[in-house]
């Protein structure tokens, strides 16, 4: 009897720690912007000071919580390449495990937005004929993402099963 989200082999291949760094940076960025907005509004609007203090406290409490949660979430991303299929696990709160047979892949995407590029990571997205297949691995080091894409594409070609 196996734990439902256990790795198929020895362990899960983790994503780059840069993913957690990127998300932490985002949390800090959003908190700073929110504090700045509160500060500017407090100078412009005639609202009692207690409301502004409350808003600042709320942001200062929420930010560390978000910091912990996004870090935990990033650590839960993992994948495992097997002979005929790819296992992907993610989500600390809502846990998901996806199994995509290479023979069912229609195409593979590699995406890297400006922020991701700055952190040297990219995400790989696998598509099958089903829109329900949400097989995405974010936060792979850029060269690892390219390697995985090439490997998945060649495996997909050799094992393609049609519809």
């Amino acid at each position: 009897m196996k734990e439902p989200f256990a790795p198929p082999g020895e362990r899960w291949e983790p994503v780059s720690p840069a993913l957690a760094r990127l998300r932490h940076a985002l949390v800090v960025g959003v908190a700073v912007v929110l504090l700045a907005v509160v500060g500017v509004l407090s100078l412009l609007l005639p609202v009692p000071a207690a409301a502004w203090v409350g808003a600042v406290v709320l942001v200062l409490l929420a930010a560390p919580l978000a910091w912990v949660l996004v870090g935990r979430n990033a650590r839960w991303w993992g994948y495992a390449e097997r002979d005929a299929d790819l296992y992907i696990r993610h989500g600390a709160f809502f846990r998901t495990l996806v199994v995509v047979p290479y023979g069912r892949m229609q195409y593979v995407d590699v995406q890297a937005g400006p922020l991701e590029q700055a952190f040297g990571i990219a995400s790989v997205h696998l598509h099958t004929a089903s829109p329900g297949t949400s097989a995405r691995i974010p936060g792979l080091p850029a060269d690892e993402a390219a390697r995985l894409r090439d490997r998945l594409t060649s495996l997909g070609e050799s094992q393609a099963a049609g519809l």
Partner: peptide
């Protein structure tokens, strides 16, 4: 079968 998923 296209792909399989577990969710919790």
């Amino acid at each position: 079968v296209q792909s399989l998923r577990l969710r919790q």
